[in-house]
Design a protein around this nucleic acid. Sequence first.
DNA 1: CGTAGCGCCTGCCGGC
DNA 2: TGCCGGCAGGCGCTAC
Length: 271
Amino acid sequence: MPELPEVETVVQGLSLAVTGHSLSAITFHRDKIREEIPTQLFRELFEGQPVLDIFRRGKYIILRTDLGFGLIHLGMSGVLAVESKALPLPRHTHFTADIDSTSERLRFTDPRRFGRLGAVKNLNDSIWLSSLGVEPLIQKNLAGYLGKMAKNRKVPIKNFIMDSKILVGVGNIYASESLFDAGISPLRSANSLIKIEWLRLSRSIQSILKKAIKAGGTTLKDYRTSGGEMGYFVNELSVYGKKEPCMKCFHPIMQMRQSGRSTWFCSVCQK
DNA sequence: CGTAGCGCCTGCCGGC
DNA sequence: TGCCGGCAGGCGCTAC
């Protein structure tokens, strides 16, 4: 579900509500999501400790206290929200905590349970983070980096830019959108791109992610901002989920499967 | 080593 | 109306 822009939007939305406040009544409504939740450690790090910072690494949301870090991954259907304590809890809510000195609570809900909830004393301890590739909006000379990493990589370029060991944050929607924007076919093997194409693709990835962040992300179904609002980048999508003809050349947008995921593209504009 | 395929889960939608 | 297959913003494990 959420890709970099959605996670970034959630982090920005949580920042004011959570920073400087401590969590209490920390409750795990189940002790396993996809894997075991370190409930004891999480409580130890957060009970009574003010949250000093909230930030994002890849698609992970990270909260910091003096004692350590909490990590949250939204998977495909996860929602992390701040809302009134008085509201009833939705189905599939796995974690709640009261935000001290407010009438609000933090809630994590994830029907499909592909999400993750973790805790570590040091960020270096996290095996989840240690294998992550570069940040698309921070990496200097992204085109050069991607081109170098793509040597000997025959995987389709779409899979390559979605590989979180290479590049974080680009998921199924923004991979299709970036490749359309750059005019590159999702079927091309990663090692076939030439310098100018890496430049175009890098710029497309960065500009689309930035625009999507400004729009509050893309809501197809589950995704909501931390305040419960929809992300309206869905109105700016060019190919993903489009039944209408290509906005550039008016040929039909094609849909195909790549590694079990849906790819949307224009076979005329993307070469 | 790189790659393809499968599995993890629930919910929703369209076709029959 | 109800059932069934297919599909959904992710990612890690396996076999080759």
